[in-house]
């Protein structure tokens, strides 16, 4: 329980708030499922092909489950939690990048940062050339007219 609370604190969301958001959605889903099961059980004997009802029920359950998931994903609690998870994952990637950067630097090899600097310089250069070319063409066209 402590771990659960700690994890929730880390995720930056209140577990009670999350439960308040999600519980009604899950309860509604199960209520729908029990109703569908009950209805389907009553129909088995009357159908020419009794398994058709089972196929329909299975599909209905999957589609309803999907709808329930979408509703859960649309809660603010989920958005906050997933935002924090993404941030945690990105922090991990950044930490790994830093380790790589330091290792390469220690080995006197070019790092991603060095290459990015070159890329940025090239980008700025090509951008400048592009706008200069455009401006020259514009002036040329004006003169031709």
């Amino acid at each position: 329980m402590d771990i659960w609370k700690k994890w929730n604190r880390k995720a930056g969301t209140d577990v009670n708030e999350a439960a308040k958001d999600v519980a009604p959605i899950v309860a509604q889903y199960w209520a729908k499922m029990f109703a569908a099961l009950w209805e389907s059980a009553g129909q088995v004997r009357t159908q020419e092909d009794p398994l058709v009802g089972q196929d329909e029920l299975r599909r209905y359950m999957l589609v309803s489950y999907n709808e329930m998931m979408k509703k859960v994903l649309a809660t603010k609690s989920f958005a906050a939690r997933s935002g924090n998870s993404v941030k945690g994952m990105l922090d991990g990637v950044k930490a790994w990048n830093e380790v790589m950067e330091e290792t390469l630097r220690a080995l006197h090899l070019p790092t991603r940062g060095d290459i990015d600097e070159l890329h940025e310089a090239l980008y700025n250069l090509s951008r400048r050339v592009d706008y200069m070319t455009k401006s020259l063409e514009k002036n040329g066209n004006r003169r031709a007219k």
Partner: peptide
């Protein structure tokens, strides 16, 4: 669309 894009 969690199941729509996978299982379904």
């Amino acid at each position: 669309d969690p199941l729509g894009n996978t299982l379904l």
